[in-house]
Amino acid sequence: MTPATATTVVDVRGLTVRFGSVPAVADLDLRVPAGGSVALIGRNGAGKSTTLRVLAGVLPPTAGRVIVAGADAVRSPMDARAAVGYCPDVGGLIPRATPWEHLQLAAQLRSLDEGWKSRAEDLLNRFDLTSAADRITAGFSHGMSRRMSVLLAAFHEPAVLLLDEPFDGVDPLGVDATMEEVARARMRGAAVLISTHLLSLAVQACDEAVVLQRGTMVAAAPAAELAGTDGAARYRELLA
C-alpha cells in the first residue's frame, strides 16, 4: 500500500462497519495519494460498496478513522462531502428529475461558479447524454443511469472521486468516457477509488488494486500484476 504522506488524499485506518452482528468491513486500512487510483475488487459482499459509502459520508463507520482531502468524514462531514464525488453502485438518480435538474441542484448545493453550465454541457456531450438532458431519469436504461451517475460524481471536479460499479451495463463508448474522466481527475491531482467486478477495466483505470474478502483486505498489489490471463488466474486464487 502507498505509505501515508503529505499528499495522501484518502486515509482510512482501522475502518470497521457492522450491520447488527454482521461485519461488513473489518479493520480496513487504505490510503490513496493525490493523483492515484485504487481499484477495490472482490466477490459480492466483500465490503467494497460499504467502504465507498463510508468514504462518501452516506454511512457512519462503526469504528476507525476516515480522512478524505484532509477532512474527517465523521467529525466534519460537510467538508468531506464537499471534497467527494460519489457514484453509488445502484440508482443514484432522483427518478422524476431530469439530468439537467440534477446538475442544477449539484451546482446550487456545491456553490459552483457561473462556469458550471458550460462544464455540464461538456460532460453531457462527452457521456452522450445531451439529447436526454431534459428527460426524467425514470425512463433511462441501466447504462444511461450509470453514465449519468459517473457524470454527477465528476461534475464538480472533486478531490476524491468514488466510483462504485461505474462500468456495469455501460456500452464501450460510455466506458471510454468514464476512463477519460478518471484520467482527468488524476491529472488534476484527485484520488480515485473504483469498485468493480470487471478486472480488465479495473487494471486499465487504476495503478493499484486492493482485494477484499469478507470485509478484510487479503491482498494489495500494483494493478498491472492482475492484468492478462495470469493476472486473472491469480485474482481467482485470491478469491478462492
Binding site: V58, M78, R81, I94, L109, T137
Partner: peptide, 19 residues
C-alpha cells in the same frame, strides 16, 4: 421516497441533512 434511488446521491451533497 420522493428521492427514491437518488437519495444516496443527495446524501453526499453539502448541506444535505438539514436542507
Amino acid at each position: 421516497c420522493l428521492d427514491g434511488p437518488g437519495s444516496v446521491w443527495i446524501a453526499t451533497l453539502p448541506g444535505y441533512p438539514s436542507l
